[in-house]
Amino acid sequence: MKREYFLRGVPLKKVAAVIVAAGFLSAMLLSVVGAGPPRDAGDGETIFQQKCASCHTIGGGTLVGPDLQGVTSLRDVDWLTRWLAAPDKMLADGDPIATALLQEFNNIPMPNLGLTDAEVADLIAYMQAQAPAEQAPEDAGSAAAQPEPQPEPVAAAPEGYVDFGSKLFVGELRLENGGPACISCHSIDTIRGMGGGTLGPNLTHVYNRYGEAGLTAALKSLPFPTMQGVFADRPLTEGEAADLKVFLAQTDLTTQQPVNATGFVALGVIGAIVFMGLSQLIWKKRLNGVRKPLVGR
């Protein structure tokens, strides 16, 4: 049997279609109106500092990823464009250069940074402009000899404390700029109870994978696509980054096994069964009807 709710002269389907169409149109309008100020495009250097500099330098040596000095002559523009736009896709497609790079850099894949086509073009233009001028291929070895301004060396980082790092990780100390504690999404094998989060990767041995310089750089700007949404505006302070780094250096040494979800799921299932048992106890007279107890008085 079909019940028709909204018949008042106009068939339901027609009215619904009009509402949906109106909804779509106004939503489009709203999303255009509310799109906010356009991003600071057209400035490859800004993009590089925001999105690339935590893992790459231009002439400053290898961090998490390769030094990008002269990368525009090493790779052709088409390859670079595709790589910058969707490195995850190229790795999945088994691009030979990408695969070789992945192996060379400790199997840490370059994340998809969600760059627009215009941003990719700006970045490539910036990297081309940074390439050593008029350098013939046979001069490659002399790049270091040029009086090229070297990027400033990493400033003396503040000393970190394992204890603070540990408390920052689980949230007992709040992050100064308001970011959520690491445990929200990451786990460390030394955390007992029901463990840490699993939205992001387990960070127990991240120190080993990224290395000292790489981890320092990564903690500085947390350049991972998912994290950027939150941490772009709420970066770690230098002190927090240093504390977390020494904490992660220490957890790298552990041999403890991670906690799995069994306890958590068991708690949920047992709790649900207890609740249903309780509801049966509380309302066990529900099927008796009202007449019997009345007659009994």
Binding site: G171, S184, C185, M194, G196, G197, T198, L199, A261, F264
Partner: peptide
């Protein structure tokens, strides 16, 4: 809730 812990925080 089960596979992407801890949802209440994130």
């Amino acid at each position: 809730a089960i596979f992407y812990r801890w949802g209440s925080s994130w």
